[in-house]
Design a protein around this nucleic acid. Structure first.
Lengths: 220, 220
DNA sequence: TAGATTGTTAATCGATTAACAATC
DNA sequence: TAGATTGTTAATCGATTAACAATC
């Protein structure tokens, strides 16, 4: 009763969170296909390499609309901008980084962010030896300048790359400054209001997933 | 019928994969509690900070045995080694890294791995300017020495930190050398035999999860 | 046309939560 | 003891898969 038939949009049911991360994988795969000169793909073709069923691929995309062609499949060049639009990477995103330590500096040099339009435009630290320097073309500011720079640059997302003990304090300050998304590399859970989305990346934990499978095999 | 009552172990049903990653979070949280001098915690206390229900915490742990004390909860110092044993981090793990580029070097300097007993013992590259050097105390070898070093050091897990185009080839070679777990930082899906566990970390994809939530809020 | 493949509904599967006796 | 909390079973919820008419 909500939607009249063959109306193109379908803004019902909020998609499960898992759908969004699969969408990112579909996008990466589609970009890979285009680089290899492939013009179309199918739900089974797309799912195969990623380990998902064809039904799942179709269902995931159906949350957002009808993008395929019965009998043909999906046209890569057509689907890519659709997914970018859904994920919000159809535009550039200025990103802030807090913490210019070892890991932080490396991430500054990582070229992979640019691939989807992310650009680190400011680094914040409290170490006077680093403040004022330019690392990998990015200015290092004192953390106290956060609010000013965030406002000036229109920054909405940030990466936390500080020691675990400092992470919660930094996060609180980021939220107060109006940030809306936080990628946390500190190995600690940070508590934040519902309105702010957090993704945690704990490199030691990723490795633990591997050791579990190794010892499991050994145990039988 | 399988288990007689009050037998301490309970090696039935394989746990879902999601349980294992939560186990890592429980461990991290327990270590955090211990550092703060807390001796016991409860399933609800443990779940709260992580955003899981008390029932889920108890169920997850119950896959592996009975570790709690009715009326008391879980003793941190007691549960930590149990989880480490399950995950396999009750011992040290030598780790190989392939790719000594920008991101690779940073990961070499990252101290967080040591926290759970991971030690990068060898780096492999094909750039003659880097081979033979020692970075952050770790020897850089030619990729052709992989098999030799892996055997000598008893390495079972590796990180791939090479460009996307090279990742699949490197992965195949790692598998041939007998590796059992691979942490892949290259932004590409790699196809591997069932017997080898892969975890992929794509930093741009993590950021995409954030942009989705930001634009979603903006859209309503 | 016959073959391929979509979008979508219904059926299945699996994971989370609620509830509670047992225990400290 | 009363209060707290576990381990576990049954009930609920949600996500994945199967199936198929519609379409190219």
């Amino acid at each position: 009763m909500t939607s009249r038939k063959s109306q193109s949009a379908k803004p019902d049911e909020t998609p499960p969170k898992a759908v969004i991360s699969r969408l990112s994988l579909y996008l990466r795969e589609l970009q890979h296909l285009v680089r290899n000169g492939q013009q179309t793909t199918s739900s089974s073709g797309l799912g195969q390499r990623l380990g998902f069923s064809d039904a799942q691929v179709r269902k995931d995309l159906a949350y957002f609309g009808q993008f395929g062609h019965p009998g043909i499949g999906y046209r890569c060049e057509e689907l890519i901008p659709v997914i970018r639009g859904i994920l919000g990477t159809d535009r550039g995103w200025p990103v802030a980084m807090v913490g210019a330590g070892n890991l932080g500096r490396a991430l500054l040099g990582y070229k992979g962010f640019a691939r989807q339009g992310f650009r680190i435009v400011a680094v914040f630290d409290i170490d006077s030896a680093t403040i004022g320097r330019v690392i990998e073309g990015v200015q290092v500011y004192h953390f106290d300048d956060l609010e000013k720079v965030v406002a000036a640059e229109g920054i909405k997302i940030a990466m936390i790359v500080v020691p675990a003990t400092a992470a919660q304090g930094v996060a609180d300050r980021l939220v107060a400054a109006g940030l809306e998304g936080i990628l946390n590399f500190a190995p600690v859970t940070i508590a934040l209001p519902e309105s702010v989305n957090t993704v945690g990346v704990d490199l030691a934990i990723e490795l633990e997933q591997l050791t579990f499978s190794v010892v499991k095999r050994r145990r039988g």
